[in-house]
Design a protein around this nucleic acid. Structure first.
Length: 833
RNA sequence: GCCGGUGUGAUGGAAUUGGUAGACGUAGCGGAUUCAAAAUCCGCCGAUGGCGACAUCGUGGGGGUUCGAGUCCCCCCACCGGCACCA
């Protein structure tokens, strides 16, 4: 018989909602607190896709178990609702983005309810709500007041389709991460946040938190710390050319210098350059290229550049004059924008020297630098470097910098790849930046009592071609008075990027209705850090880094108690769909070839990202309608290793439904007895141990497998009401509706989600006797059954008396035996002499 | 190029971190039930050889350490993710 999942699920969802079963309280010191967080969704028009339930169900399972473990659990949800898709939809359909956002949020809320998540629905936040973004703006003002927000003109990434500036993190392979249109470089005046001031803190903070390694590694790589030295070379103009190098040990091998085309020296030296026309042409060309084109060309193509004729540089360690080039392989935005060219031991420099016929000097022995670049190891010996000859590379790195420091021409220096965060967007649907421009006073922050600065109503959301926000057309709003001198002034018309609202939402959940502060001190102290934050790997270098930055800052200015926002971070794998163009899906060679011709390497993959065009999108609504939310939850947890990508399979969904039907049908077959039955006791204790540990370790798939095994046992041996009760308790975080219903039908009392998690007794997880394998020479030859507490001697004796083993042992001498308790015994024989 | 990860039956995936490879689930095969089908319940299900008990092989490929290797070490191959002229 199958159970009526639709009715049951609705019944319990309504009850949880009406009774506020999962509302938590601030400051309940009678219980330990647990704050579990999932990334709040962007409420798109398409609704929830199957990617959402994976992390949400996982954290819901954990939250439900933590409640049963006696914790006061904060498990909130909200909406990250500012953003481009909504704005684009608004432009197309002439509907206000706020209206669209409201509809989408309603739809998402409906879908999330249908999955039975135990969110505290009284704490929902919406980043587009003025009572929320008031505090986003407030944080911006604090950043400004502490010198961490500034406006500057700089080349930025400009999306040609969105007509909007993008952060470096939003540019992927030279195109806009969102719309795929080409990104070009454009000079624009932009608000910036000085995240670089926190580069070291963001690295150091990683040592204080429990993030999975790949997240830590990716963040470290992204911040890109490198230690080296800054060294001053003199130009023949008298200017100091400062270079950054991590290879001070190669300084005697410098045969040329390169400065980036954007460097101010180029303009400074204009009058002295004999080949100015050539230089100017190169500079112009480089400026036209986007960052992507510059790096794209880098891969294999030849190095380009122009020698600055009329100026030379002098190597301070040996007084040698070397030529100076401009080349776009030197980036203006990293280090000092100048590098020393050491072709012997750097691949790029080697290629450049070959192209321009520059001399190549070896400074570490081991290769033939005239033939090819030699990548040194730390233990190679230094040559051609005066008093440093004979040292190892590692020693010389230190000794040469010491010597440069003594002579006052160099010092140790740390550089980071991380750039400041471009914080302006020329868009409507974002938080207004609360700043006012006054011709007399310059940029003036809006007084805090004027927050929130509301988004004005505009007629058109279309961005302008000159790169201004649509808000710029609202002159009534733009024209204001200077908060400082009272004179006429203009408001900033750029808005904040989508990352702003999500950079602190986890704090707002702690006290979402507070209108005096972003959250009360009591709430911030009580909830402290997020205990467990699960989210996608794609946010590692964006949201996760940005929010750590804001949190560190808010801690530094005394607003919040912890520097690091998240004590623990885990990450789930993506859910893929079946590839309809997979070569394995057709029979004949011709068909296979046709697919390869048409789809190329795409055809070789059995699974691909779900997309409308491939028709492999799975809609959670359909799954819930056909199989129920409990089956959906169970399947998505059973699909495979939580951290790895997985492929959706309708057949396997049915397997999970079947399991829940078996649980339901078992209810009819129960025997009396409120205790665990003798025949099931051991299996139950084992299952409790396994499931408890697996949930904590996010090994949901094996936890469910253990429950399936337990149900198989119950079918084979029969089960008492007591046995069944344990099963329902353990299954309830995964399939909460079904378990509540069965709990009620059996009259166990109360609601299953409010019960205590069952405990296991270690001694009852092992049987009185245990089966052990007997290995001879490392191969299993027989099995024996011995008492669980048998001594090693007894085990060996039992093994030797086993008939098969006894036969093998004839004429042999036992030289060694290894006993692995409860597992196996390994015997090594030698022929008797 | 650099960093991280993965590779196990027809298939999704397990394997207590060096201890009986393939748990659990799909699909498949057989049986029970049924007028029949679906559903349900029970059983079989890595490959090769053998009627058989059993034997041999088997975790991308090749070496090694070990009584014992999917797991550790060395060298390859393939795929996935991230970064990429960062001096």
């Amino acid at each position: 018989m199958k159970y009526d999942f639709t009715a049951i699920e609705q019944k319990w969802q309504t009850r949880w909602k009406d009774e506020k079963t999962f509302a938590c309280v601030n400051g309940d010191t009678s219980r330990p607190k647990f704050y579990g967080l999932v990334e709040f969704p962007y409420p798109s028009a398409a609704g929830l896709h199957v990617g959402h339930p994976r992390p949400y169900t996982a954290m819901d399972v954990i939250a439900r178990k933590k409640r049963m473990d006696g914790y006061n659990v904060l498990f909130p949800i909200g909406y990250d609702a500012f953003g481009l898709p909504t704005e684009n939809f608004a432009i197309k359909n002439h509907i206000h983005p706020a209206v669209i956002t409201k509809q989408n949020i309603e739809n998402f809320t409906r879908q999330l309810h249908m999955l039975g998540y135990s969110f505290d629905w009284d704490r929902v936040v919406d980043t587009t709500d003025p009572s929320y973004y008031k505090w986003t703006q407030w944080i911006f003002l604090q950043l400004y007041k502490h010198g961490l927000a500034y406006k500057t003109t700089m080349p930025v990434n400009w999306c040609t389709s969105c007509k909007c500036v993008l952060a470096n993190e939003e540019v992927v392979e030279g195109v806009c991460e969102r719309c795929g249109a080409p990104v070009v470089r454009k000079e624009k005046s932009q608000w910036m946040l000085k995240i670089t001031a926190y580069a070291q803190k963001l690295i150091d903070g990683l040592d204080t938190v429990d993030f999975i390694d790949r997240v830590k590694t990716q963040q470290r790589n992204w911040i890109g710390r490198s230690t080296g030295a800054e060294v001053t070379f003199q130009a023949t103009t008298g200017d100091d050319i400062v270079v950054f190098t991590t290879r001070a040990d190669t300084i005697f091998g410098v045969t040329y210098m390169v400065i980036s085309p954007e460097h101010h020296f180029v303009q400074d030296w204009k009058d002295r350059l004999i080949n100015w026309d050539e230089v100017a042409a190169y500079v112009e060309e480089a400026g036209r290229k986007s960052d992507f084109e510059r790096t794209e060309l880098a891969a294999d193509k030849e190095k380009t550049g122009v020698m600055l004729q009329g100026v030379k540089a002098i190597n301070p360690v040996n007084g040698k004059e070397v030529p100076i080039f401009i080349s776009d392989y030197v980036l203006a935005s990293y280090g000092t924008g100048c590098v020393m060219g050491v072709p012997g031991h750097d691949g790029r420099d080697w290629a450049f020297a070959k192209k321009f016929g520059l001399p190549i000097i070896e400074t570490a022995a081991g290769g033939d630098v005239q033939k090819e670049v030699y990548t040194t190891s730390d233990t190679d010996l230094i040559v051609n470097s005066a008093q440093f000859n004979g040292m190892t590379v590692a020693q010389a790195k230190e000794a040469i910098v010491d010597w440069l420091e003594e002579k006052g021409i160099g010092h140790r220096q740390v550089n980071y790849k991380l750039r400041d965060w471009v914080f302006s967007r020329q868009r409507y649907w974002g938080e207004p930046i609360p700043m006012v421009w006054c011709d007399k006073c310059g940029w003036v922050p809006l007084p805090e009592d004027q927050l929130p600065l509301l988004l004005p109503e505009v007629e058109s959301y279309e961005p302008t071609d000159n790169g201004e926000s649509p808000i710029a057309k609202m002159t009534d709003w733009v024209n204001t008075t200077c908060p400082c001198c009272g004179g006429p002034a203009k408001r900033e018309t750029d808005t904040m990027p989508q990352w702003a609202g999500s950079s602190w939402y986890f704090l707002r959940y702690m006290d979402p209705h507070n209108d005096k502060a972003l959250a009360s001190k009591e709430a911030l102290d009580y909830w402290g850090q997020v205990d467990w934050y699960n989210g996608g790997m794609e946010h590692t270098t964006l949201h996760l880094l940005y929010s750590r930055f804001w949190n560190n800052f808010l801690h530094d200015i005394g607003v919040i108690p912890h520097a690091e926002p998240y004590a623990k971070r885990t990450s789930h794998g993506m859910i893929l769909g079946k590839n309809p163009h997979y070569v394995g899906s057709v029979e004949t060679e011709e068909e296979k070839q046709a697919l390869i011709d048409k789809y190329g390497s795409q055809a070789m993959r059995p699974s691909v990202k779900m997309s409308k065009s491939l028709g492999n999108v799975v809609n959670p609504d359909d799954v819930i309608r056909d199989y129920g939310a409990d089956t959906m939850r169970l399947y998505i947890m059973f699909i495979g290793d939580f951290e790895k990508t997985a492929t959706w399979s309708d057949e396997s969904v049915r397997g999970c439904k079947k399991f829940l039907d078996r649980v339901w049908n078992l209810n009819e077959k129960l025997r009396d007895g409120d205790d665990y039955s003798a025949e099931n006791e051991q299996a139950i204790h084992k299952a409790i141990k396994k499931v408890s540990g697996d949930i904590e370790a996010m090994k949901f798939n094996t936890a469910i497998a253990a429950l399936m095994s337990l149900v198989n046992d119950f079918y084979a041996k029969g089960a008492t009401r007591g046995d069944y009760k344990a099963l329902l308790l353990m299954l309830s975080p995964f399939a909460p509706h079904l378990c509540e219903e069965l709990w009620e039908l059996n009259g166990y009392g109360g609601q299953v989600c409010l019960q205590s998690w069952p405990e296991y007794d270690e001694s009852k997880t092992v049987a009185a006797t245990t089966r052990m394998a007997v290995q001879v020479g490392g191969k299993v030859k027989a099995n024996i059954v011995v008492p669980a507490d048998a001594s090693d001697e007894d085990v060996v004796a039992a093994a030797l008396s086993e008939p098969k083993i006894a036969k093998l042992a004839e004429g042999m001498r036992l030289v060694k035996s290894i006993v692995v308790k409860g597992k196996l015994v390994s015997l090594i024989f030698k022929a008797q002499a």
